[in-house]
Design a protein around this nucleic acid. Structure first.
Length: 203
DNA sequence: TTATTGATTGACT
DNA sequence: GTCAATCAATAAA
């Protein structure tokens, strides 16, 4: 498997391009005890101040979403519903709050450890097929908010499999059934047919 | 100051 | 299909 970390420039591309390009890449997590790895199979783009669905809509800024304003190549981890963590890949230059939410990954390495962290998962494909689930499986929480994605604890490596445009499916983002236009923007990308994609298909 | 909501998940009817 | 858990940020008052 290729171990080349994604270069800094990768994260400065258009956020939609980053979201599509992340599919097939491998997310690595070194907990200090062990090294876990999982392939990214589903991601959503969030387009900053002009995106009503983004935490940074209208330029909102708070201690929680501060990491969204970091330079591309950092990590934004937030706590939601009082109990779950979600991980984003920050894109664009410092001060621009665009990011890509990782919604599902496919375990590659350390799956036994992931099963221990996800005791409620009935099947292996339930381990990481949701944004909160993958953070639990990979031990991603507040300690990694603002972390570099080219560091030792958390990093992403290039695709080691071939992905063509026809392998990538597109849909509106999950969790926004409201009336705002942004709810219908086609910014969710996933690997068509992959067993580890989250339960939602078309909305 | 209080009320509402959510980039979710899992249990249950 | 419905709904509760649980809390921080935002909106409303």
């Amino acid at each position: 498997m290729s171990r080349a970390k994604l270069p800094p420039d990768f994260f400065l591309q258009e956020t939609i391009t980053v979201a599509r390009s992340l599919l097939g890449c491998v997310l690595w997590r070194n907990t200090g005890e062990e090294v876990l790895a999982a392939r990214i199979v589903e991601a959503e783009a969030y387009l900053g101040a002009n995106d009503a669905a983004s935490h940074a809509r209208r330029g909102l800024r708070s201690p929680r979403n501060e990491s969204m304003y970091l330079p591309g190549g950092h990590c934004y981890v937030y706590f939601t519903y009082g109990m779950h963590w979600c991980m984003n890949v920050v894109t664009q230059e410092e001060g621009t709050a665009e990011a890509v939410l990782l919604r599902a990954v496919e375990p590659i390495r350390g799956i036994e450890s992931m099963r221990r962290r996800r005791p409620r998962a009935k099947r292996d494909c339930d381990l990481t097929n949701g944004p909160g689930k993958l953070c639990a499986a990979l031990a991603i929480g507040k300690a990694l908010d603002g972390e570099s994605l080219r560091g030792d604890r958390l990093y992403i490596t290039k695709r080691d499999i071939e992905i063509s445009d026809s392998d990538i499916a597109v849909s509106p983002r999950i969790g926004f059934e409201g009336a705002a236009d942004a709810a219908w923007w086609p910014l969710r990308f996933f690997l068509e047919g992959n067993r580890y994609v989250s339960a939602y298909r078309n909305v």
